[in-house]
Computed example of a mutant assay.
Amino acid sequence: MAVTIVDVAHKAGVSPSTVSRVISNDSRISQKTSRKVRKIMEELGYHPNMLAKSLVTKTTNNIGIVLPRPADELFQNQFFSEIIRGIVTKAASGRYDVLLTTGTNEIEEEQAVERLVRGRNVDGIILLSSKKEDRTISFLREKKFPFVLVGRSEQYSDLISVDNDNVQAAYDVTRRLIQAGHRKIAFVSGPLNLTVSKDRLDGYTKALYEAGIAVQAQYQFEGSFTMESSEEVVQDILKLKDRPTAIVAIDDLVAFGLIRSFWRQGLRIPDDCSIAGFNNTLISEMCLPPIASVDIGIYQMGTSAAQALIQRIKGDGFEQARIIIPHQLIWRESAGAHS
């Protein structure tokens, strides 16, 4: 015979409504009572019917994560696995489950979000990227649906978002290369319709400008967050008569792809070209040579985004619209001085 909420209440010495409030994470229930009830639930093997609960409370205890590109590309990049780890950890501590969705293009992404919202499959959504004129953000705002953006919106300044100061971070890494004697520095971005690409490009150009170095279009390359894109960039660099002596890459995976492609062409890093990336993921330490990188606190970004969303879902209020996670330069062998 199945264990019921009444059985749990009887053994715990509380009312069924108290057990229900414990299941719903009601803040009015003390931690002592909550721990006691949950222990009894575990002992009796009681599992609440979350579907029935959602019909009554209009909540699901689910958080949706919108991945910004097809999954086969996404999980090549450790940024996404690390930020999802942070989100899941914080969500689990608040007794929320996580649903992932994505699309192969902007329209499919918007349709996936609409299904989550209209079907009430989640209580809130975390977006892992922001684009110019982002239709998904506009839709969520129109529906007044709880969401948090990882990144920066160019359209709306009042969004709850978690981000780095990407302009300053790119400025800092470019400045470090300039201080090492480099004057011909290239920048390999992701798609320029992404805010993160635009902001890091702005930081790069700002550092060059302040150092009195001419900003040259031939040293700016738009790619994607894949190693295949890096191979194409290297082919374009090798065609230049006056090649760069250093490269700032939008991401560690891109930096790794550049190093691998240069190596295949018989060039060595940093002897022939210094390279620095972003994210300080595991690949930056495992690469030969290890990649100089900007640590942007990916895991902390994930936990902060989940915490902000849960607070918004619960109506606890969240005063800070934009949360900035500090960055740190981690200098390694891939970025040497220019002789």
Rank of each mutant, 00 (worst) to 15 (best):
D158E: 09
T174S: 06
D251E: 15
V56I: 13
V167A: 04
A12S: 15
A306H: 08
I298Y: 01
K241T: 09
D134K: 10
D242N: 14
I323E: 12
I23R: 14
D134Y: 06
S54T: 04
D7F: 07
R332N: 01
S130N: 09
S15L: 08
S339M: 09
L127Q: 04
Q111A: 12
I137A: 08
L267P: 04
S24W: 06
K184A: 12
W331H: 06
Y96H: 09
D158R: 08
S34V: 07
R85Y: 03
S130I: 14
K53P: 00
R200W: 03
E228T: 14
P326G: 10
I213C: 09
I65E: 07
V248E: 03
I296W: 02
A217V: 15
I325S: 09
V56R: 15
S27H: 14
Q76M: 12
E285F: 03
S261T: 02
I5S: 13
A276N: 09
F139H: 05
R312M: 13
V122P: 06
T102W: 10
D272A: 11
A170Q: 03
C273Q: 01
R21N: 13
T33I: 14
S229P: 03
N121Q: 11
S189G: 05
F278W: 00
S224M: 14
E110I: 04
Q265G: 01
T245M: 08
G223C: 05
W263Y: 12
N279P: 02
I291V: 03
R141K: 15
F79M: 06
K32T: 14
K32L: 08
V150C: 13
M1F: 06
I323H: 15
E222T: 13
G151D: 09
A246V: 01
Q76G: 06
E210S: 11
W263K: 15
V150W: 00
L192D: 07
I83G: 08
V98N: 01
Q76V: 10
L267F: 13
D172L: 07
I213R: 05
N77C: 09
A9D: 04
E142S: 13
V233F: 10
G257A: 06
E228M: 11
A337V: 14
S229F: 09
V6Q: 14
G181H: 11
S27F: 05
E109Y: 02
A180D: 10
M301K: 13
P16W: 09
R118C: 02
T101I: 11
L128G: 00
S130R: 00
D251K: 03
A52Y: 08
T303H: 00
